[in-house]
Nucleic acid binder design. Structure first.
Length: 668
DNA sequence: GAAAAGCGAATTTTT
DNA sequence: TTCGCTTTTC
């Protein structure tokens, strides 16, 4: 293929038509944020208070003031958030916004470590492992170590990975984590310490880096050499951090190092919306910010531009019930609006039918489908609704929950490319080898131990296949040779080669292979956008496609799609109408969390986040008479978070079956 | 001795 | 739908 050079988009040379109209777009508090460019600044921004708008204008202001865009770092919770904000900055200042550095802490870690990692002994072609890769390694090491003696209860690999991750994200020693959070495994403390060391060694030996390492090693990097630290902190002269309530202690430490000595750092957050403590995040970072950065200015944004007052009244009431009370009263100028509605359904399917029917009505009345969202606590809670939507021909997009990247077949396929990029990647070798007929854990371990040291794995594997008389391995060896012959090919071409080899295996292993092949095709489509294998692979791990589009048969309504999302994935977003499902005590809050005050409080904040996504209409739905194995009881009352809510803040509806999926409404 | 098949149990949220 | 353990097969 011939290279065809595309000239940069003309936009880059265009200047904005007129000067930026700050006063027309921002209120007084927001203006203060946008014009206080130097020194540490903490912005406490309530839900819907125009936080994104403010960030966008602040970046624009920096550029307008002559700060070079590449000296600005915008840290966000997801990469998508950064992209969207920078796109909006582009509307204000033109193409210069392309050069602003933006992304998550993890993606910044990735980029800096690729460039400077050698100074802390990290190979620049390292592979990023996701959680399930990490669990695979732990599983491997655990069996090798022989932790499972008779009669002893051994933590599951998932649990072990969680413990290890907690040590990093909460800056605690493994012993403390076990004593504090996993007291029932205290007797295994020595073994687990041993295992953690083994895990670290394994990663170092095979150039593997897990999510947490991206932070740990970045932190290390910033400490390694004074000159390097200076170079990096000079590169990011102005920093903006979004969703600060969902950062952890390690991230706060990294920030402090990145920002020193200039301290031109601004953090935005809302302690009432902290919902990632299971990942080590703590809203204490917000509280401590002024101590960490002496001279901090604090600005509060309290006016809500999103929701009507009746919705805010309910949200305020719910968060007021929190143990650690948040000094927060959102107010809106939209006094008028429909009351939020609490809807009781006889069972899950009645709940789904109600939602579908109401959505169809709203659409009749002129609400766009993509201005409606259905939110759930955990993704499986939407399954029944998905079926119902399918029946009625409503297309939707689903966010959160089971991710494409986590599926076995996608991981299998990508593993073949990962060993091309990083031949030391033992997890991927192991994964691929285990797919081959006649190769199990033992054989695989033997081969992996050798192959990671081979300069040319292809010919070596051919030889091994001949010795073993394994046709499966021979086929694989051929595939490896092909892939390595053309390492400069595009990711898409390499993927095609790997697919050709993998497809027969896929068909043999899974009865539902047609569905899985479609997933692989989807990955193939994404790969086309990339030139570099390394970038493609990193992105697939750090920023995986986590949306699945389910189109109804036939009619495609001008790209209009309903959004189904977990509450976690709905963070920062808003819709005209929001349905909240499964608002049943025992489901939300889930019966897992009701024994811990700490977790219960987080569930309450999660509920608050869900409520504040709605602009005009809010439906809180709960089915009754649901048997819950966890609780060992039939659940039938609405979430306890509504216990103290006055009945004047909510309408109550009871669904009455009118046959033929009709519903009637009785006011109580 | 190692791999494959078979069975019961458990299942939040995500970079 | 996958995890961890047990039984069966090679």
């Amino acid at each position: 293929m011939k290279p065809y050079v595309l000239t940069p988009s003309q936009d880059s040379f265009l200047q904005p038509a007129s000067r930026i109209d700050y006063e027309g777009a921002l209120n007084a508090a927001q203006l203060e944020v946008v014009f206080s460019l130097d020194g540490p600044l903490l912005v406490i921004a309530g839900a819907g208070s125009g936080k994104t708008q403010t960030l966008v204008y602040r970046v624009a202001r920096l550029i307008e003031q002559g700060v070079h865009p590449s000296h600005i770092l915008l840290l966000t919770f997801t990469r998508r958030a950064a992209q969207e904000m920078l796109q909006r900055v582009g509307l204000l200042v033109g193409g210069r916004s392309d050069q602003v550095r933006g992304g998550t802490f993890h993606s910044v870690g990735n980029i800096l470590l690729r460039r400077y990692g050698q100074s802390i002994g990290l190979d620049s072609s390292f592979t990023i492992m996701d959680r399930s890769d990490a669990e695979d390694v732990i599983h491997l090491l655990r069996s090798e170590y022989g932790l499972h003696e008779k009669g002893r209860r051994v933590p599951r690999k998932n649990t072990i990975a969680e413990m290890f991750s907690k040590t990093v994200n909460t800056l605690r020693a493994l012993d403390d984590v076990i004593f504090g959070d996993y007291a029932h495994f205290v007797e295994l403390i020595d073994d687990l310490n041993h295992l953690q060391k083994a895990y670290q060694n394994y990663k170092a030996k095979h150039s593997l880096v897990d999510f947490d390492d991206l932070l740990v090693k970045l932190d290390e990097l910033l400490d390694s050499e004074a000159a390097l630290h200076e170079e990096i902190s000079k590169a990011f002269r102005y920093m903006l951090v979004d969703e600060y309530q969902d950062t952890n202690f390690l991230q706060a430490r990294i920030l402090q190092k990145l920002a020193s000595p200039h301290n031109n750092i601004m953090a935005v957050g809302d302690e009432a919306q902290s919902i990632y403590s299971f990942r080590g995040a703590t809203f204490r970072n917000i509280m401590d910010f002024p101590n960490q950065f002496p001279g901090t200015r604090v600005i509060k944004l309290e006016e809500n531009y999103r929701s009507t007052q009746p919705i805010l009244n309910l949200a305020n009431e719910v968060i007021r019930g929190a143990e650690e009370s948040y000094d927060k009263r959102l107010f809106s100028r939209r006094a008028e609006g429909a009351m939020p509605v609490l809807v009781r359904a006889e069972d899950e399917n009645a709940q789904s039918r109600f939602v579908v029917q109401r959505i169809l009505e709203l659409r009749e009345e002129g609400t766009a489908l993509n201005d409606i969202a259905v939110l759930v606590r955990s993704s499986y809670q939407a399954f029944d609704l998905e079926i119902e939507l399918g029946k009625r021909g409503i297309s939707f997009i689903k966010r959160g929950g089971m991710r494409l990247m986590e599926t076995a077949h996608v991981k299998d396929l990508l593993a073949h490319l990962r060993v091309v990029e990083n031949p030391h990647d033992a997890v991927s070798w192991n994964r691929i080898l285990m797919l081959i007929e006649g190769i199990g854990p033992k054989k695989s371990a033997q081969i992996v131990a050798q192959v990671v040291q081979e300069a040319s794995p292809g010919p070596w594997l051919v030889e091994v296949a001949r010795r073993m008389r394994s046709t499966g391995l021979a086929a694989f060896a051929g595939c490896v040779e092909q892939l390595n012959e053309t390492p400069t090919s595009s990711p898409a071409d390499l993927l095609s080669l790997a697919s050709a080899y993998y497809l027969p295996i896929l068909k043999q292993r899974y009865d539902d292979y047609p569905k899985r092949i479609r997933d692989l095709d989807h990955i193939q489509m994404i790969a086309i956008r990339y030139d570099l294998l390394q970038v493609f692979l990193s992105d697939m791990t750090l920023d995986p496609p986590n949306e699945s589009v389910v189109d109804s048969e036939g009619e495609l309504l001008d790209n209009e799609r309903l959004v189904l999302s977990t509450i976690h994935s709905a963070k920062g977003l808003e819709w005209s109408c929001v349905f909240l499902l499964w608002l049943l005590d025992g489901k939300f809050p889930s019966s897992y969390s009701i024994f811990s005050n700490h977790e219960l409080e987080e569930e309450r904040r999660l509920f608050y986040v869900a409520l504040t996504r709605a602009k005009h209409l809010l439906y809180l739905n709960y089915p009754i008479n649901i048997y819950d194995r966890q609780a060992g009881a039939v659940l039938s009352r609405p979430s306890r978070f509504l216990d103290d809510v006055s009945s004047t803040l909510l309408d109550s509806w009871v669904l009455v079956d009118g046959g033929m999926s009709e519903y009637g409404i009785n006011d109580i």
